[in-house]
Structure formats: structure tokens, C-alpha cells
């Protein structure tokens, strides 16, 4: 009885505020747009009993999904989201790995401080961290001022409102997600293996590629998914740094809902985004599971 109370409170909370809302999205994605409040039909009318339920199911169709395949805007947005997420993840790995590697090689007494320094930006507002880049990347921003001052360029670079700004924003905000799992993997690495390799005539570079990289692979994979998954549905970064040219699916969903007030299409966009995300999420879970089993 006590257990029932303990289970049921969080259970029902999540059912009502997580699962049911998602089913509503699914339902509205199969409905038609209407100029009413709420702006879609059919609405489920339980007062009419069985007839109402039948009318409800008869009104559902895949029109919105067909619409998504017909309008090139959506195709381009999905494709461009995947592209931006992939490139940003690669860049984050290239930036994050040397940092994690440096942390793992650092003297023991620095470790806690270094960890704290990586985690601290997590606690500061995401919005503030993205905002900070506007002043740096804009045409008369600090980066251009600095580059002109040291004489590398004569005319300011246009970075703001391009995809490059979005890459920088994603790498910057999600970098701790990349560093931490790689650091965790590298820290466990047994240095005597590297010494053995060198004793046997391996160069340090070869030992790095033959030992360090493969042994830290689970951390690298986890870090990549932790950057890729949130980057794919990102809204704040493309809308603040990407300008109107950068298409990302999170932004399209937002505009479809708030500007066009087309709820069924916004819902269909959400369903497709989730369908795309399922694959990396399952792969990520598999990787974690393997880690847990290997750890036992």
C-alpha cells in the first residue's frame, strides 16, 4: 500500500505531464488546420460517445506529413540541422579531446580545480553564454577589432548571422559535455601500458593512436552523442547567432507555431524530429549499457 503511494505519485505526474502531452502532439499532427481556437480539427468530443470517437478517428490523416515532404523548406531544414549538428560535434571533439587529455595528464592536485573549471560554465545561464558571443562575433565586435589591430585582416570578417557563428555557439555551450566523458575514460587509462609500448619500440605518436585513442573510445562516443543530440533540436543558438539564413528544425518548429499559428504542421515537424533523434538516442543507450557491463 505504501509502495503504491510512492510509485503512483511520480508515475501519474509523468503520465499526465509527459506522456499524454506527447500523445496530443501526435494526434494534432494527424489533424487538419482550421481557423478556430484551437486552430485544428477534429477535436475529440467524448460527450457524443462512440460516434464522437469514430468521427475523431475518421478525421485523422497524414496530410501534414505529406506537406512536409512537398515543401523544400522542411527538407532543407532537416538536412541543414543534421549537417550543423555533425560539423559542430566534430569540431567539439577536436577542441575537447586535447583539453580532456591535458586534464588527464595534469598533476593530481590540479584535478579538482580543473574539473570545477569545466563544470562551472554549466551552472551559468545558457542564454548568457550564447549572448556573450554576439558582442565578439559581430562586424564591429571584439574578434574583428582584434584581428584588424594585429594586422591579420583589413576588412572585418562576416561571421555573425552565418553557420560559422552557429558552429562556434554550439561548440562553446556544449564543450563540457564533450570534455567530461572523455576525461573520465582517459583518467582510467593505465599509463604503464604506454610505457610498455614505448619500451617495445613504439614512438609516442604511434602509442597515442594505437592505445590512448582506442581505449578512450567509449568516452569519445558518449561525448559525441551528448553534443549531437541536443544540437540537432537546438533553438536558441541558431536564432541568436545564425540569422535568418540559417535553417534549423527547432527554429522552424518555433516559427510554424508562434508566427504562422499552424499547429498541425508544427506538431508534424516535432514528430519527424523525434523520429530522427530516436536512432542516435538508441545508439547512445547501447554504448552506455556496454560501458556498464564492461565496468562490472
Amino acid at each position: 500500500m505504501r509502495k503504491f503511494a510512492l510509485v503512483s505519485v511520480p508515475y501519474f505526474w509523468l503520465l499526465i505531464l509527459f506522456l499524454v502531452p506527447f500523445l496530443i502532439v501526435l494526434k494534432i499532427s494527424l489533424s487538419d488546420t482550421a481557423l478556430a481556437i484551437p486552430p485544428y480539427t477534429p477535436t475529440l468530443d467524448l460527450a457524443e460517445g462512440w460516434a464522437g470517437i469514430k468521427a475523431f478517428f475518421a478525421g485523422l490523416d497524414f496530410e501534414n506529413f505529406t506537406f512536409l515532404t512537398e515543401d523544400p523548406l522542411y527538407w532543407k531544414a532537416y538536412f541543414s540541422s543534421l549537417q550543423i549538428a555533425t560539423i559542430s560535434t566534430t569540431l567539439a571533439l577536436l577542441v575537447g579531446f586535447p583539453i580532456a587529455y591535458g586534464m588527464a595528464q595534469a598533476p593530481d592536485e590540479w584535478r579538482t580545480t580543473l574539473m570545477m573549471l569545466v563544470i562551472l560554465p554549466f551552472w551559468t545561464s545558457f542564454l548568457i553564454r550564447v549572448y556573450a558571443w554576439i558582442g565578439i562575433l559581430s562586424t564591429e565586435g571584439f574578434l574583428n577589432q582584434f584581428l584588424i589591430w594585429i594586422g591579420v585582416i583589413d576588412t572585418p570578417l562576416i561571421i555573425m548571422n552565418t553557420k560559422i557563428a552557429v558552429y562556434i555557439g554550439i561548440v562553446y555551450t556544449y564543450l563540457p559535455f564533450m570534455i567530461l566523458p572523455i576525461y573520465a575514460a582517459l583518467e582510467k587509462l593505465d599509463n604503464s601500458l604506454l610505457e610498455a609500448a614505448e619500451d617495445l619500440g613504439c614512438t609516442r605518436t604511434r602509442a597515442f593512436w594505437l592505445l590512448t585513442v582506442p581505449l578512450s573510445r567509449p568516452g569519445i562516443i558518449a561525448g559525441c552523442f551528448l553534443v549531437f543530440i541536443p544540437a540537432l533540436g537546438e533553438f536558441v543558438i541558431p536564432s541568436l547567432l545564425g540569422g535568418s539564413e540559417t535553417l534549423m528544425i527547432g527554429k522552424i518548429l518555433w516559427e510554424e507555431f508562434f508566427n504562422n499559428r499552424d499547429w498541425p504542421v508544427a506538431s508534424a515537424v516535432a514528430v519527424v524530429l523525434l523520429a530522427i533523434l530516436i536512432i542516435p538516442i538508441i545508439l547512445f543507450q547501447r554504448n552506455e549499457q556496454k560501458q556498464r557491463e564492461a565496468g562490472k
Binding site: I16, L17, V20, P21, F22, I24, V25, I28, I229, P230, L232, G233, E234, F235, G250, L253, W254, F257, W263, A266, S267, A270, L273, L274, L277, I281, F284
Partner: peptide, 15 residues
């Protein structure tokens, strides 16, 4: 934890 915020927000609003 892995759900994009836009989807969580949209679904709750519709609820």
C-alpha cells in the same frame, strides 16, 4: 533528458 526543448514546450502547451 534527451527530448528537445521545443518538443517538450510544444507538447505541454497543447496539453
Amino acid at each position: 533528458l534527451v527530448m528537445p526543448e521545443v518538443i517538450t514546450g510544444l507538447s505541454l502547451l497543447l496539453l
